[in-house]
């Protein structure tokens, strides 16, 4: 029989603060196990730890603020629903990044069906494609420098498989081993894919990188 989840969140402010401080010292894995036992404050701590880094990952992958935020929300909802599916065999970060990555890729496929891309003859998986100007939100335009915007655009112009690894490695700074587990490809493939992604991106950003 499945364990009953205690959904009570009624703590006094002092008690809540004390518990939050206690939870902040725990590892991700300890938090998810506490959440599996019904501790909703542990889930709050997970959200606190991961919301921005997942948002950064998804935003760099999709390049669209609202959709990315929605995907991160959906990621946490999935963690909430599927909390009992998590087992100690994997790192929690690997598990949550896999969920977010899969949702982001699904969104990309959905967009691809919806949008008409200029280079329609190019394949989805193996070739780069151009993205429309509308993909960068006004918020992004005002909140980032020009070169950051250019880099962001060029990252998105990479095919998803290269984009994913370069974001995970060079922006999120995850280890090759963890990337290998998240995207479920062998370690050697991850390394060579990161190298190829860097080569592609440096070629696209030649004008910017040579001038700085």
């Amino acid at each position: 029989m499945a364990k009953k989840t205690n959904i009570s969140t009624k703590y006094s402010p002092i008690e809540k603060e004390r518990l939050q401080q206690e939870l902040a010292k725990l590892s991700d894995e300890e938090l998810i196990f506490r959440f599996q036992d019904g501790d909703l404050l542990a889930f709050d701590e997970i959200v606190k730890r991961y919301k921005n880094q997942l948002f950064n990952f998804v935003f760099r992958f999709l390049g669209e603020y609202a959709d990315s935020e929605d995907i991160v929300q959906e990621t946490f909802l999935r963690v909430f629903r599927k909390r009992r599916a998590y087992r100690k065999v994997a790192k929690f970060s690997t598990w949550i990044y896999t969920i977010a990555g899969n949702l982001a890729k699904t969104e990309l496929r959905r967009r691809k069906k919806r949008n008409v891309f200029p280079l329609s003859t190019l394949g989805y998986e193996d070739r780069d494609y151009e993205i429309s100007d509308e993909s960068l939100s006004p918020e992004t335009r005002t909140n980032t420098h020009m070169y950051e915007e250019i880099i962001q655009r060029e990252i998105q112009a990479l095919s998803p498989k290269f984009r994913e690894v370069i974001i995970l490695r060079d922006i999120q700074e995850l280890s090759y081993e963890e990337i290998s587990k998240i995207i479920k490809v062998p370690l050697g493939t991850v390394k060579s894919r990161v190298n190829r992604a860097r080569l592609k991106l440096q070629a696209r950003l030649k004008f910017l990188l040579d001038n700085k």
Binding site: K51, N52, Q53, F55, N56, F59, R60, Y65, E69, V72, N143, T144, Y147, E148, I151, Q152, I166, D170, I171, E173, R198, L201, Q202, L205, L209, K212
Partner: peptide
């Protein structure tokens, strides 16, 4: 240089 640029990209927040 690209690696350095990517590392320096500002972390977007929710």
């Amino acid at each position: 240089s690209l690696q350095q640029h990517l590392k320096k990209l500002p972390s977007v927040k929710t």
